[in-house]
Amino acid sequence: MAYTLPALPYAYEALEPYIDVETMHLHHDKHHQTYVNNANAAVESLPADLKALAPDELLRHLDKVPADKLNPIKNNVGGHANHTFFWELLKVGTELKGELKAAIEKDFGSVDAFKEKFAAAATGRFGSGWAWLVVQNGKLAVVSTPNQDTPIMGEKFAGVSGEPILTLDVWEHSYYLKYQNRRADYIAAFWNVVNWDKVAQLYAAAK
């Protein structure tokens, strides 16, 4: 079954003023759609058992992908999966609380310390990539990946591992219309649009 572009779970303007409507149209309708198109082309030549896998499952089994197909799959199926995940984690007006907040305080020392570490991962990612909050062996950790790599690919293919529960896209197309070269301002604004309810659900399932 061919991959399709998922509809946003909110209106394009829902994240204003932190993420502008023009960026949302460009990011979702153009960039994500391109990853979907290229992912379908890349997957088309895979063996039938791999073609039948959902994007996340395929990325968890990259060791089964032929070597000459590996980079197109990582780049494009990764791009599709990462963006699909990212859209679900955005919402204005939720609150970090309960078990997730307690876990962040336990594993990072404080919420502020977690945000500083996450921001450092996002700011320090040279070029394009992602910052992640993951669950590793029951504990929370912050990691980053280049390009469209994701922790679910594992250490061998992404250099990091863990079950993602939060991510931030730091490719320039995700912020340049509004923030230009001020990636740090975009990262600071991100905390206003994190869907903490969704992150808490993911944490409960992953820990």
Rank of each mutant, 00 (worst) to 15 (best):
Y3F: 15
Y3R: 11
A7T: 01
Y10P: 02
E13D: 15
P17H: 11
H28Q: 13
H32T: 09
H32F: 04
N38S: 12
A41V: 06
V43F: 03
E44T: 11
E44P: 01
A48F: 01
P55N: 02
D56C: 05
L58M: 07
L58I: 02
L59W: 04
H61R: 15
L62K: 05
L62S: 06
K64S: 13
P66W: 08
D68S: 14
N76C: 04
G79P: 07
F86S: 11
E88S: 12
L96P: 06
K101M: 12
K101H: 09
A102K: 12
F108R: 02
G109F: 11
S110W: 12
F114K: 01
A119P: 11
A122C: 15
G124A: 13
S128I: 06
G129A: 09
L133D: 05
L133P: 04
V134F: 10
V135M: 14
Q136K: 14
Q136H: 07
L140V: 07
S144I: 01
T145A: 05
T145N: 03
N147W: 14
T150V: 06
P151G: 07
I152R: 03
G154M: 06
A158L: 04
S161K: 15
G162V: 06
T167I: 01
Y175E: 05
Y175H: 09
L177C: 00
Y179S: 01
N181P: 00
D185K: 13
Y186G: 04
A188V: 08
W191I: 05
W191G: 03
V199M: 06
A200E: 01
Q201N: 12
Q201K: 14
L202Q: 04
A204W: 02
A206K: 08
A206D: 04
